[in-house]
Amino acid sequence: MEGKSAKEIIAQRVAKEFKQGDVINLGIGLPTLAARYMPEGMDVFLQAENGIVGLGAVTDDTSDQLHIVDAGGQPSIARPGGSYIDSATSFGLIRGGHVDVTVLGALEVDEKGNLANWIIPGKMVPGMGGAMDLVVGAKKVIIAMTHTQKGAPKILKECTLPLTAVGVVDMIITEMGVIEVGPDGLVLTEVNEGYTAEDVQAATAAPLIVI
């Protein structure tokens, strides 16, 4: 994986989780990068919670930004076969289990699948936006993030920050490997080249079940 940044490694691995026909919501930033690594011929519907089902290719065309943006506020468009919907319908389909996969970043995740990614009290209070609904409603919740925050573990026994939702995370994909949230705790299912299972455990503040 020489030459690839941590973000590229993570995004590329995330894309392997997508299946033909999936409805997918990608968070802003790193998760959005995953769309670039989808295999050719893969036909999915990307959903933008502000009202697009079937998000088209990223565009630099800003001529209609007054009327059409993605969930990051960037100029966008629905692809042929896609549709524009209102926000209540959009979150109805999110909450109602019609999104197969959502990919988001995190501040903290713990061994029970609890997620904290919307607030650092006293420091950062941007609001939860659509994150709480997405992780509660989507069939599969993937956290895509760097394994630590400047060396400090983000995968914990128990989250310390206020939660986004309880027990919702299915999978954590980092530059070090892949961790699945199982009934008995966190299972290390893949270790990336350049790391050992011991390295991943050392960077994780919760016990990992190694298979």
Partner: peptide, 9 residues
């Protein structure tokens, strides 16, 4: 047009 419908509806 497009996504301007959002919460207005």
């Amino acid at each position: 047009k497009g996504t301007m419908r959002n919460f207005s509806a």
